[in-house]
């Protein structure tokens, strides 16, 4: 297995059969999702989710329910104008329901880079069979703003965050070997300590040292172990924002030996990015996998130096001409690009 395959495997753990279902990922919208697929009138459906959040699993449920043909757009193909991929969609639409994955690869952020997307939207607009499509959330938001793609879909379903207890259940059931959950204060506990806490208003945040008082009264070791485990998973859910693939990737790197809540941090958290690096990351975040050649087109210059740094910082992996998002770095990349307000 190559490193890139390993990354996919880690993120893909979340969508292995029997572990998590569409109902968990869609929440209250699951019933509406099934009704939309079963409806007498064929309407295109969009399933929108963050990278590695389990969008594929929802589409798998759609494939089973509709007995549909499954088509997936690949990054390496580039914009599939007049390519086999779009022809395959056209052919499949003539024979029955279709589920199309990774539609974020239908555009390229360049002049003339939306032609394939427009062609695809025309195709599904005239289809008289059910069509379910999967979109990266960041690509969807961008395309809704610049191309109004949201108007082409009557139903949009968001893959939501997984609740903390469900996340813990899914991750703990997957491994025989358990880490030792350790409370932050067990070994060096003092009655009064200074801790830096984040104080924020809207998107402003500063850390200030605040005294923290801990009285070790009425505790036993088993309580501590349970508390520490709960705190670890609460932190895991908070850092990953309930994203199952991100949480799985973080867990993979942590789940042996001693584990403290403070060990749960997103990859590349302290990296300082310039505008070009942030823009490059936004493209990768929106596409999940991008051909290096596409990045050259988008940036207008060779992306080698930028990609080299991002790779070293553990934010992306670059293998065989393909740039892949590191699941454990998704929270960092999201924060870095959102704070710069890159659409």
């Amino acid at each position: 297995m190559t490193d890139s395959e390993s990354d996919d495997e880690r993120a893909g753990d979340a969508r292995r059969s029997g572990e998590v279902d569409a109902a968990t990922l869609l929440g209250e919208a699951h019933e509406t999702f099934e009704d939309a697929l079963d409806g007498e009138t064929a309407v295109p459906v969009a399933v929108v989710g963050s990278p590695f959040a389990g969008r594929e699993f929802v589409l798998e449920a759609a494939v089973e329910r509709l007995d549909a043909t499954r088509i997936r757009f690949e990054a390496a193909d580039g914009p599939p104008t007049g390519s086999d991929a779009l022809d395959a969609v056209g052919d499949a639409l003539e024979s029955g329901p279709v589920v199309v994955e990774d539609c974020q690869h239908l555009y390229r952020r360049t002049v003339g880079g939306f032609e394939a997307l427009e062609e695809f939207l025309d195709l599904i607009a005239s289809a008289d069979v059910p069509v379910a499509t999967g979109w990266n959330r960041y690509a969807w938001t961008y395309l809704a703003a610049v191309r109004g793609i949201d108007r082409s879909f009557r139903h949009r379903f968001d893959v939501g965050p997984v609740a903390t207890d469900r996340l813990a259940e899914l991750l703990l059931s997957r491994y025989d070997e358990m880490p030792t959950f350790v409370s932050e204060t067990t070994e060096t506990e003092r009655p009064v300590t200074l801790r830096r806490r984040e104080v924020g208003w809207n998107d402003l945040a500063i850390t200030v040292p605040l005294p923290s008082v801990t009285l070790p009264i009425g505790r036993d070791s088993s309580d501590e172990s349970i508390d520490a485990r709960d705190v670890v998973f609460e932190r895991l859910a908070a850092v990953s924002q309930g994203n199952l693939g991100v949480a799985t990737s973080l867990w993979e790197s942590l789940h042996s030996g001693e584990l403290r809540p403070s060990d749960v941090v997103a990859a590349g958290g302290d990296v300082d990015l310039d505008r070009d690096e942030a823009f490059c990351l936004r493209i990768v975040l929106s596409k999940e996998r991008v051909a290096r050649e596409e990045l050259t087109d988008v940036l207008g210059v060779s992306p080698d130096r930028i990609l080299g740094r991002l790779d070293r910082e553990g934010l992306v992996t670059v293998r065989e001409g393909l740039v892949r998002l590191d699941p454990a770095a998704v929270p960092t990349i999201t924060d870095a690009t959102e704070s710069r307000r890159i659409p």
Partner: peptide
């Protein structure tokens, strides 16, 4: 296309 694909653009509703 040149407007909306620029790295500097900010676009929403």
């Amino acid at each position: 296309d040149a407007l909306v694909t620029s790295r500097y653009v900010y676009v929403d509703d």
